[in-house]
Write a protein that binds this DNA or RNA. Structure first.
Lengths: 179, 179
DNA sequence: GTCGTTGGCTAATTTGATTAGCCTAAGCGC
DNA sequence: GCGCTTAGGCTAATCAAATTAGCCAACGAC
């Protein structure tokens, strides 16, 4: 009875591969166990249950998304920062549609998930930081709504028409970035 | 053994009440049956199963949303139409957050659901119809992304900061509506 | 090499959806 | 009003997935 070399991190890797393969279908203990080459009950030696696995997966996805937008925003100011945030955000969702779809609507319920979500929020705040007072808050909400809305629709395959989606996105970004 | 007077429509009503009560928790045959005063297997005399019930519920929600945005857009042109669409869309999500959350990400998989989703899309198209060619498509995508993104975040309680959410939304709407 | 802990397994339990099969209430023609 | 048909309720059984219980081998520290 050889060991499989599992760990919470390894299970998250496996779950991400599963999300990539299925395009974001709900995770299950059974499919993750099968991909790990192990029987379902063995999963419980590494995570508390499906809910925790989902939270850890969400945390990892938010971590990766946060890293991408942080790198894009870093060193930029004003409209450039907002543009960079939006493009990096959308790019992540397009590159990993299954992962983006699997993100929980709100990063709550598990410390790691909440922390990773807060990190993304902090970068969004940084991207509108040059605006003052309430205007920064309004800009932040617009940024979040547009980024999440566009990413969600695109990751779901919601844009059926033939016109260039990049152009649509650029147009939206410029509308948001204008003072 | 008295009859309960059920029907697909009545079950949808019950499911909507459930969504309103729980704030959008996943539906289950058991809870709907309990609210209907009936045992779970009886549900199957009216709908094919949970998946069909969910589709019918989604169709009803899209129908109601479509009715709301249609009434708002009706008779308006240009920026006024787009503004009216956005405000009516958001207003629906704020008035029925549980229902909005329960909407399937894409209206596919059941004819009634697809039809109801297409109806909402058609109204969004009408709201940008005065723009020409590809610009109409870009505007449509921006409209959808902003409406869905803002509605999703707000229905999920994602705006924690104290500043006025109406003002944030108005600001976003004016950015989108500008040529 | 032995011991304690870790991580696999099989078997059993629980919860929910679903199906099978029974049985009566309601509507209808006579 | 009476018997027939059908629709809609029920109980009991089945299936799938998560989870728990309890057993045993593998690995690392000594």
């Amino acid at each position: 009875m050889p060991r499989a070399g599992l760990s919470p991190e390894a299970l998250v890797d496996i779950a991400l591969a599963e999300l990539d393969a299925t395009g974001g279908a709900p995770l299950s203990i059974g499919t993750v166990a099968a991909r790990a080459g192990v029987k379902p009950p063995s999963i419980y030696k590494h995570v508390a249950g499906l809910a925790e696995l989902e939270a850890l997966v969400g945390a990892r996805i938010y971590d990766d998304l946060g890293e991408a937008v942080a790198a894009a925003v870093d060193g930029r100011q004003g409209a450039d920062a907002a543009r960079a945030f939006l493009h990096a955000y959308r790019s992540f969702a397009v590159r990993h549609p299954g992962r983006y779809r699997a993100l929980p609507p709100r990063p709550v319920g598990h410390p790691a998930l909440a922390a990773a979500g807060a990190r993304v929020m902090a970068i969004a705040e940084r991207a509108v930081a040059d605006r003052g007072g309430d205007d920064a808050i309004h800009a932040l909400r617009g940024l979040r709504a547009a980024a999440h809305g566009f990413a969600t629709l695109e990751a779901a395959g919601g844009f059926g028409l033939p016109a260039d989606v990049d152009a649509s996105f650029d147009r939206l970004v410029e509308q948001l970035v204008r003072l």
